[in-house]
Amino acid sequence: MIHIPPELKYTESHEWVRAEGNGVYTIGITDHAQQLLGEMVYVELPEIDNTFEAGDEFGSAESVKAVSEVYAPVSGVVVAINEELEVSPDLLNDSPYGDGWLIKIKANDESALDDLLDAKAYAELAREEED
């Protein structure tokens, strides 16, 4: 059973977004995504101050099974990266919504959040993929 926190927003490409206030958003990959990928062995993240548009690839997560690109759900500038993932990529498996976060972005256009999925819609997407 996958865990889908109701307070987050989600993308169809399996990223989650959490508002931190002041236009800053934390981004990670979902529990469903980490289960599909399996044991994480490497995470590639962008540099702080890199700018991305919504939908741009900003990094990748490599598991024993595959490499998966990770996409920015909102446009903005990277204000923090999770440096712990460099030494402990397994945090993505152990705590995808907690210690396994990827980056924090200061959004320059928060309207992209309107296009994201709520928990119910994401749960339906994940269910469809499992069938």
Rank of each mutant, 00 (worst) to 15 (best):
K104G: 03
G23P: 02
L8P: 10
P89T: 05
E84K: 14
A119T: 09
L125F: 11
E47D: 12
K120L: 11
S88F: 12
E130A: 13
S60V: 02
R18T: 06
G98P: 03
E128F: 08
K120F: 12
A61W: 01
A121P: 10
A72H: 04
P46R: 00
E7L: 08
A72N: 03
S68C: 05
K65L: 07
L102N: 05
E83M: 02
L36S: 13
E44D: 12
I103T: 08
D99Q: 15
Y122E: 06
H3R: 15
R18C: 13
A119V: 11
P46L: 04
I29H: 00
I105K: 04
L92P: 00
L85W: 05
D109H: 05
E20I: 06
S88G: 00
L102S: 04
V70L: 06
R127I: 09
A61S: 12
D118W: 05
L125A: 10
L8N: 03
Y97R: 02
D56T: 05
A80K: 15
E47R: 11
H14R: 03
S60Y: 04
N50S: 14
D114H: 13
T26A: 14
L117Q: 07
E124N: 10
P5N: 06
D49C: 08
A123T: 13
I48F: 08
E57K: 14
A33R: 00
I105D: 04
K104N: 09
D90S: 12
F58T: 01
N93W: 07
I27Q: 02
L85R: 04
I4T: 10
Q35R: 09
Y71M: 01
Y10D: 13
F58W: 08
A19Q: 15
E15C: 08
E7F: 03
A33M: 02
V67R: 02
K65F: 13
L85E: 06
V77I: 11
D109A: 10
V41D: 06
G28R: 01
D118Q: 01
A112S: 14
M1N: 14
E110Q: 12
E57S: 13
V64C: 01
G76Q: 00
V79F: 10
T11Y: 00
A61G: 01
Q35E: 15
H32W: 10
E128K: 13
A119R: 02
T51D: 11
N93R: 04
S88Y: 13
V17R: 00
H3M: 13
P5Q: 05
T51M: 09
W16Q: 03
E39Y: 09
E12S: 15
P89G: 06
